[in-house]
Design a protein around this nucleic acid. Sequence first.
DNA 1: GTCAGTCGTGAGAGCGCTCTCACAAAGGTC
DNA 2: GACCTTTGTGAGAGCGCTCTCACGACTGAC
Lengths: 335, 335
Amino acid sequence: MSARRPPTLEDVAARAGVSRATASRVVNDDPRVRESAREAVTSAIAELGYLPNRAARSLVVREPDSVAVLIHEPDQRIFADPFFSGMLRGVSSRLAGTPLQMVLLLGEPARDAARMERYLRAGHTDGVIVVSAHRGDGLVSVLTETRLPTVFVGRPLTEGPAFAYVDVDNREGGRIATRRLVERGCRRIATITGPTDMAAGIDRLEGWRDTLTGAGLPTDAVETGDFTSQGGAEAMRRLLAAHPDLDGVFVASDLMAAAAMAEIQATGRRVPEDVALVGFDASAAASLTRPPLTSVENPVSEMAVRATELLLRLLRGEEVAPEVLPTRLVEGGTA
Amino acid sequence: MSARRPPTLEDVAARAGVSRATASRVVNDDPRVRESAREAVTSAIAELGYLPNRAARSLVVREPDSVAVLIHEPDQRIFADPFFSGMLRGVSSRLAGTPLQMVLLLGEPARDAARMERYLRAGHTDGVIVVSAHRGDGLVSVLTETRLPTVFVGRPLTEGPAFAYVDVDNREGGRIATRRLVERGCRRIATITGPTDMAAGIDRLEGWRDTLTGAGLPTDAVETGDFTSQGGAEAMRRLLAAHPDLDGVFVASDLMAAAAMAEIQATGRRVPEDVALVGFDASAAASLTRPPLTSVENPVSEMAVRATELLLRLLRGEEVAPEVLPTRLVEGGTA
DNA sequence: GTCAGTCGTGAGAGCGCTCTCACAAAGGTC
DNA sequence: GACCTTTGTGAGAGCGCTCTCACGACTGAC
């Protein structure tokens, strides 16, 4: 017969012996349809295998339709860090009941920035969740200009308009970790920080400093890491060289902590007897090491769920306030 | 003035003093436009901040618009396994130059199957990449029914119509791993398999069996794992209980291998001196253990890129053949 | 000078849907 | 019985875009 063309609402209406308008009402659950008409349309839909055309629909009703998750990090980190999987899982689960789809925007900072900017500007998406933004990322200004509803996971370090965000209490996390080291008797406590262009890097360091200052201990053993395994190893080597007497380290991520521990053990020092160690994330990586890492919990998926919730509210036009989640120490064998 | 309504092609045309048709030609790079008209339209676009309406466009030109990545696995695995991040990275990079967006469909097998099915049937997406499908997954039949262009990563174990797929040579990988163990002198070689409802589980086991049979060694020390850390630990405990004399193990994933190694070491056995170990994936997890894992490479991102390539071809209506990528041993310190 | 062949352009149809509006039929109310 | 509601329905406009078709203005060949 006719060419293989998917059935339209018109076809459904014809088959059910009603008008297109009535068929549309049935599809959209409008109550003002007689029961007999509703049944006729319903079975016509079933017989024809009718599926509404999303494009045609959204041409008329301008409703949000998709949410982008923006991850602007080096490939290497995205590969290795379970943080990102947890993030996606959380967003996905919160979006489950909604008609919104989750579009993933991944890219290397330098290489893919232009492409990602183009995508954001092209209006393909109705809202954005920015995961792990660095200070000065150009995409943030794109977000400002386009006035796209945006929620950050991790407090954004941007001057200018305030963005909604969700974060864990990184500073308190740093305090908790360092307190554990102080309490178990460490007196020469170093830290490997995260990137200093991210709130997670800065705040965890501040927490470490808070506790040491409060305990009257020195705060000069600081090395910067980049949240990668390799960066953690290198930072640890620098620390051991500069402070061979250290007896405790707070490492701002588990991935770095695992690598740091290997470095410590490679010098013949025992963990935790000679050098105690506290990580951050309490991730799966923490349980792979021997001994398993003592680590500060980072409720990644919960942050993602909360961030998605905030974004949904923004899309409804509501006002939202930043949320900071509490944290706690997860016991392992390294401190 | 008028309500805040995004500018349309009509507005652009009016401002440039041409017809809508000509404006459309400029937007779509049609060569048959006089240079002066082209310039007028281009600057009108810039001045108005015009963005084409995607819905309106795709209502007319029925082109594919998005690709779904389907990951139907327990939360726990998605969280912990870097396999999935690598997957997404690969798909994302191959899609970079195309107008296709990547929609992520994540869900727990039992809990989210209905929702995911609804999504696939609703025609929101033009093609699907299925990551790590298990035998008998109901979503696979949905894919068959809807005739949605589909590519599997990992050979699908479905009867019925053949799907396109990309996989690593799992069987050869199993052989390579086991050969290493045999060559270093192991004589009592066990294996921890992947799930037996996945090709990766079955084929790696077959490879292990191939090599042992060829070497005249017994093939009875087999325990099944589920690709999770915990599953690996439990399988290793069962192996050690049943075969206390084992001196080599091929573990079908690094995550399981890391956990298995911890179990071995917990009994006082040394790795690799008392028990040698080869993992599979050569992932970041492999480098976290001490000693780092010797492991079979699993080119996750490359598979993702190839799978996306195949899907693009399917979307163009071309025929495609399955692809199986070669693999090799990555040196570590456990075998 | 006539005729065919470009070339650039605009009018207008139409993609599949929603939604307003008008209207007939049925049910109150006085 | 004349009047208003209420209820279910259909006709038709219109969302923003692409694309066909027709047409005027040039060209160049004879």
